Computed example of a mutant assay.
Amino acid sequence: MRLKFVTLLMVVVVCVGVTITVLRFGVGVLEDNFVAQLSTHYESSAQFMAFYGLLNLYIFTMAYVYSPSERALMGE
């Protein structure tokens, strides 16, 4: 069950990340000079909060999924 959840979560995060990247930098994102064109300026705080909120949600969810169960903590 955990593996299915982690896989689904990873697919959602990758899809949202790729969508944000394509919308932000355009379709020609894989050109030679991609790194030179990167910009860290956001048009609004909502863009910043959405992107980093997604990453934080992913990290917290992964920490919860990989935390030991109650039985493992009790030594059973």
Rank of each mutant, 00 (worst) to 15 (best):
S39T: 08
V35D: 08
F60H: 11
R24F: 01
Y52W: 05
A50Q: 01
V18T: 12
L8N: 11
L38V: 04
L55T: 06
G26Q: 02
V12T: 09
S45H: 02
V65S: 13
Q37N: 14
V6L: 08
G26W: 03
E31F: 03
Y64T: 08
I59T: 05
E43P: 06
G26E: 02
V29S: 06
T40R: 02
A46Y: 03
L57I: 11
V35P: 08
F60R: 13
L73S: 11
H41I: 00
N56Q: 04
V18L: 14
P68M: 11
V13D: 01
A50K: 00
F25G: 06
V65M: 14
E76P: 05
Y42T: 00
V16A: 06
S67I: 04
L57F: 14
F34N: 15
S44T: 14
T7V: 05
F5Q: 14
E76I: 08
A36E: 07
F5R: 13
F51D: 03
F48M: 01
N33Q: 14
M10R: 08
V11S: 12
L54V: 02
M62C: 10
G53W: 03
S39V: 03
T19C: 08
T21P: 00
V35E: 08
E43Y: 03
N33L: 12
T21K: 13
I59A: 15
A63M: 15
F60M: 15
R24I: 00
C15E: 05
V11W: 10
T7F: 09
L3G: 05
T61F: 12
R71K: 14
G53N: 05
A72N: 08
L9D: 03
L23K: 09
Y58R: 05
V14C: 10
E70P: 10
F60A: 15
F51L: 11
G53E: 02
T7G: 05
V14H: 07
D32I: 11
I59D: 02
E70G: 09
F60T: 15
D32Y: 10
I59G: 05
L73Y: 07
P68R: 12
